[in-house]
């Protein structure tokens, strides 16, 4: 009896420790990035850091404005590609095809999420960038190329969350709409999308978070020039790729500047997560 009691206790405490270690690592990451990054921001000045586009570490110029703009543009572009496709796919799988087809297609699309990002980058370099260069001009490796690749990468996230939201809409709403003479599409547009709205928004924001944070594929296809893009065919460098490209050889102030870039990224992603939770919570309150 005593042995069993001790074993129960031990298991409980081990599990608690494991659960808290996840929380602790999150906390440590935040502390670490902020400890390195915040002193830098204080030293250079928040305004010069955030609002200048000049990034020249050798000359001591550390302005990330162009990279913030690039990150936002790439993310926005990815959403233009991925969100409509993802939501449309979710509607299609739930409302317009038989369950048998859904059972095949949905896992296949979810499998897209398992492809390593370097493979997406590779496809971008050898297939998408040359197409853009030949047909639209510019260097090919560009904001457009990054948006297209990232759009496909966020597709499974958005589609799978949106599909779950749509399939959890009570069947009685569907029947109610159809019984009033609505067509399939009318019932989707007028009732089901409204009922599933919070879940769909959550899916889109999750996709957004993934697009902001993606690094490897973007390094390979975005061109990596530090500039505020004038057109979608211009090469750009995002916040994440900046860190990845320069961390290997950065020292001193330069290194701190990259941590400060990380702080900006951290804040952006926290805001997105807060939005996701708010959207989900509001959805539950509505039911």
């Amino acid at each position: 009896m005593v042995v069993r009691w001790i074993a129960e206790r031990a298991v409980k405490w081990v599990l608690i420790a494991l659960a808290f270690s996840a929380l602790a690592s999150l906390l440590l990451i935040a502390v670490f990035i902020f400890k390195e990054g915040v002193p830098f921001i204080v030293r250079v000045g928040l305004k010069d850091f955030l609002l200048s586009s000049e990034w020249d570490p050798q000359a001591g110029r550390f302005g990330v404005f162009a990279m913030i703009v690039a990150s936002l543009c790439v993310t926005f572009g990815a959403m233009i590609v991925g969100a409509p496709l993802g939501v449309a796919g979710a509607i299609f799988l739930n409302e317009f095809v038989s369950r048998r087809i859904t059972r095949i297609v949905k896992p296949a699309i979810e499998l897209l999420a398992g492809i390593p990002s370097v493979v997406y980058g590779f496809i971008g370099v050898v297939a998408v960038a040359p197409l853009i260069r030949e047909h639209l001009g510019g260097p090919g490796l560009s904001l457009l190329c990054a948006s297209l690749i990232l759009g496909v990468m966020v597709l499974p996230t958005i589609m799978s969350v949106a599909a779950d939201a749509i399939s959890s809409v009570p069947n009685s709403y569907r029947e109610g709409a159809l019984a009033l003479g609505a067509t399939r599409w009318q019932s989707v547009r007028m009732v089901i999308l409204k009922a599933a709205r919070s879940g769909i928004v959550a899916g889109v924001i999750l996709g957004l978070g993934r697009a902001v944070g993606e690094t490897m594929a973007v390094i390979m296809v975005a061109g990596n020039t530090v500039q505020v893009p004038g057109s979608v065919l211009d090469p750009v460098r995002t916040l994440t790729t900046n860190i990845a490209l320069e961390m290997g050889h950065a020292t001193g102030l330069h290194r701190q500047a990259l941590f400060a870039t990380g702080v900006v990224l951290f804040v952006v992603i926290m805001i997105l997560n807060a939005l996701t939770m708010a959207a989900m919570k509001r959805g539950h309150a509505g039911k």
């Binding site: 009685s172 709403y173 029947e175 109610g176 019984a179 009732v191 409204k194 009922a195």
Partner: peptide, 12 residues
């Protein structure tokens, strides 16, 4: 038209 077993007003 049809009225169902459980009231099913739309979430509107």
């Amino acid at each position: 038209g049809m009225v169902f077993q459980r009231p099913n007003p739309f979430p509107l």
